[in-house]
């Protein structure tokens, strides 16, 4: 029965395993390095140059890109627009999605509840341009469904996307419609994992609903709340597609009317790809990068103090 195995192979077992590991990791690492990390490093570099990518010439200009940028009123307005957008979107989407999740929580174990959840989630998976088209029509001041309903209740009918005051809220309504499903599902996930015993114990204690919410549910879902807030912040500061489409990007007028919806993402896009001013656009990108980084760090700092991790 004995098998005689004559082997002359040297034992290089551990290097072989390393070799295999790196081989398996290589495709992903290459993509990440070339298309994400290299550009991230590159960004800091080109912000300090006057740069013409097509001619491949660059002159070091130090901080002058930033000096030009800070003198542009439009830059400050886009920053304000972005902050306005984020300041409304982050609390609104967090609170509304938590509210919907609480409303759906009890029914979720039944078939009908699950259907409602899927309906709330559906918009999040729809392509933005395809659904923006119908929303443009819903927002139509004259023939749109929205104003028809407002008219039915004898409420004022704003000009929505055509108005400098209402264009931004219109974009926000669309964005809420598109993003709330995700946050709702995240909250629902947290709510269904709440220990039933905790809630029941509180109810037995005769706790009022509001008290229950404030003292029990809110602290227990706080990790997800933090996650949703971070996600919503990063998301709203980077919104592009819906603003581009809803405010007339295909017709060359993204960010209108009268720059009322020109956020940082829109301005970066137009500066670089409409006006071919790459250096200025990358200086703006760097600012946006730092802004998001700072906000995330600040939120982390706050969360470490207030989030209750189980």
């Amino acid at each position: 029965m004995a098998t005689v195995i004559e082997s002359t192979k040297p034992a290089f077992r551990i290097p072989w395993e390393t070799f295999l590991g790196f081989g398996l990791l290589l495709p992903s690492m290459l993509v990440f390095l070339v298309f994400y990390y290299a550009p991230a490093v590159f960004l800091a570099y080109i912000s300090f140059f006057h740069w013409n990518i097509f001619a491949s010439q660059s002159i070091f200009v130090g901080l002058s890109n930033f000096q030009i940028l800070f003198k542009q009123p439009l830059f400050w307005q886009s920053l304000l627009n972005s902050l306005y957008y984020a300041a409304v979107m982050v609390p609104a989407s967090t609170m509304i999605s938590l509210g919907i999740a609480l409303l759906l929580r009890e029914g979720i174990r039944f078939k009908r509840g699950a259907i409602v959840r899927s309906m709330v989630f559906l918009p999040h998976v729809t392509p933005i341009v395809a659904t923006s088209i119908i929303w443009i029509w819903l927002f139509d001041p004259q023939f749109g469904l929205l104003n028809a309903i407002l008219g039915f209740f004898h409420l004022p009918q704003p000009g929505w996307l055509a108005s400098t005051h209402w264009a931004m809220p219109a974009v926000m309504i669309y964005s809420l419609w598109h993003s709330i499903g995700l946050y709702t599902v995240l909250f629902l996930g947290a709510l269904t994992t709440l220990p039933r015993s905790v809630l029941e114990a509180a109810q037995v204690d005769g706790a009022k609903k509001w008290y229950l919410f404030k003292r029990i549910i809110l602290p227990l879902v706080s990790p997800v709340t933090f996650f949703v807030i971070v996600l919503a912040t990063i998301d709203s500061l980077q919104s592009f597609s819906q603003i581009y489409t809803l405010t007339g990007g295909p017709h060359g007028g993204a960010g209108g009317p009268a720059f009322s919806t020109t956020t940082d993402s829109i301005l970066i896009y137009e500066t670089a790809f409409i006006y071919q001013h790459f250096s200025l656009a990358s200086a703006m990108s760097l600012m946006l990068f730092l802004l998001i980084l700072l906000l995330t760090l600040a939120q982390k700092w706050i969360a470490d103090r207030f989030v209750f991790y189980r």
Binding site: A2, E6, S7, K9, A11
Partner: peptide
Amino acid sequence: LIGPSDAKHLSPGERN
């Protein structure tokens, strides 16, 4: 030793 050979030189699959 696996049979006559030093196991150091045999991968698990080669040991039968």
